[in-house]
Amino acid sequence: MTKMTMIQALRSAMDVMLERDPDVVVFGEDVGYFGGVFRCTDGLQAKYGASRVFDAPITESGIVGAGVGMAAYGLRPVVEVQFADYVYPALDQIMSEAARLRYRSAGDFTAPMVIRMPCGGGIYGGQTHSQSPEALFTHTCGIRTVMPSNPYDAKGLLIAAIENNDPVVFLEPKRLYNGPFDGHHEKPVVPWSKHALGEVPEGHYTVPLESARIARPGQDVTVIAYGTMVFVAETAAAETGVDAEIIDLRSLWPMDLPTVVQSVQKTRRCVIVHEATRTSGFGAELLALVQEHCFYHLEAPIVRVTGWDIPYPHAQEWSYFPGPTRVGEALREVMEA
């Protein structure tokens, strides 16, 4: 075990897979020589050469489209979109092509590729460095959407994603790159080296897709969260004293529904938390699933705590970001219902 930040864990996952599988290639904007604007690919080009790890022109549809072609050839591309906010030019290649290659060719051609993209707010990123576009991908048939919340899961999930034969959108909460963050922006940031989940095996291991993690066992209410919101929910539970069972989904879709259903049927209450905007966000799907599967067990209406239905603002960062106060209010609300 080694202490790793999420950045180091992600880099380690790519390092392990570049070493193990000669078909793995890594590319994107500034990914090669420079090692990525977030350092996630630092040193990989020097180690594996420019034909395995290389810089790409600034064209997201080109990066993903070329990746689809490489995957159709038989490679396993791990491509990077610099910010999730910039994935939109690539949506045609992701939704119309990568997602449907296997289906429309009846398995003749496949797209075993990973599309990495830093996502999420809480960093004064403003409108185009803070978005959480996961609902676009969970709504797309044929795509797997994954989001880790800590270094251990980040490495294990990324290796699992690279080894998986379906296209995977791999969302990385950049607020968690260097340390866990619970929404208390006024407090100093704690590095991953001080956190148990910063202990990461150096070699190969996987965290299975479609498996959720119980981040905090509890009896009173189930909180469904992922990414940065896992830590926000943990802090909200501690601050309110509500014995919340916090589920870190890890794989957004397809997801680990049994873990969620089992938890809600036990606690009989449910709060859903995400940074993304509310309307038609992924939380709506989670709410619908819980309602469908746990209706007769529920003691209170399901509550969603999400970003507001507005573009992500700059100066109003902490009024937008669903922090521990808002999540705590939701926990009290469902307990009082």
């Binding site: 034909s51 489209g65 072609g69 490489m70 045609d92 092509e97 429309r104």
Partner: peptide
């Protein structure tokens, strides 16, 4: 595999060719 979405195959072909070179 032919897609109904126009032009998408053009960059995929380049990616396939890059893979062959890799």
């Amino acid at each position: 595999t032919i897609s109904g979405n126009l032009g998408t195959q053009y960059v995929q072909a380049v990616g396939w060719a890059m893979a062959s070179a890799i």
